[in-house]
Structures are given as C-alpha cells and as structure tokens.
C-alpha cells in the first residue's frame, strides 16, 4: 500500500470542507485572512485555548465524525495543511 502524496495547494483550495474551516477561523480571528496553508497556528497563537477546543469540535462537525483521541495532538493541528491531511482529505 503506497502512502498518499502530500496534497497540492490546489487540492486544499478546492476542498469545500477547508473553505468552511477557513471561514470559521475568520469569524474568531479577523487576522486569520492572512493565514497560509503552512502557517503555524499554534506558534503564531492564531487561536487561544478555548478557541482551539471549539476549532477541534468544528472540524469534527465538518467531517461528520469524531476525531480519534490518538489524533488529538498539537502536530495534527499545527497548520491548515496538517488539518486537511489528517482530518479532511477524502
């Protein structure tokens, strides 16, 4: 079984789920419009601790199923690209 290749920016940009996630980010942080696919969401403090919980729950809602406990680690949410790869990629 071959591991999937990293998603292209086009693939991420065309994802309706990622569009919803990015729109959600903008509602909680007006400066999120400048967030790129590889911006470090944690180091750049794009979200505070409470927003991070709500963000995780929103991702669950968008993907239609819970995120497994083993995947609730900072590196899985480090960037929008990581979020797409880990949770939203078909």
């Amino acid at each position: 079984m071959h591991p999937k290749s990293a998603p292209s920016e086009t693939e991420i940009e065309q994802s309706r789920e990622m569009a919803r996630v990015k729109a959600w980010l903008l509602t909680v942080n007006k400066e999120a419009g400048t967030v790129g696919w590889d911006t470090d969401l944690i180091a750049e403090r794009i979200l505070d601790s409470l927003q991070m919980v709500n963000f995780l729950l929103y991702i669950e809602e968008v993907r239609g199923r819970e995120i497994r406990e083993q995947m609730i680690r900072p590196e899985c949410f480090q960037s929008l690209r990581a979020i797409y790869e880990n949770f939203l990629r078909p």
Binding site: E66, I72, R73, P74
Partner: peptide, 8 residues
C-alpha cells in the same frame, strides 16, 4: 469520553 483539549 475522550478529552478534546490540546495541551501546549
């Protein structure tokens, strides 16, 4: 129930 909190 699993915890939904990221710790950093």
């Amino acid at each position: 129930y699993p915890t939904k909190r990221l710790k950093f």
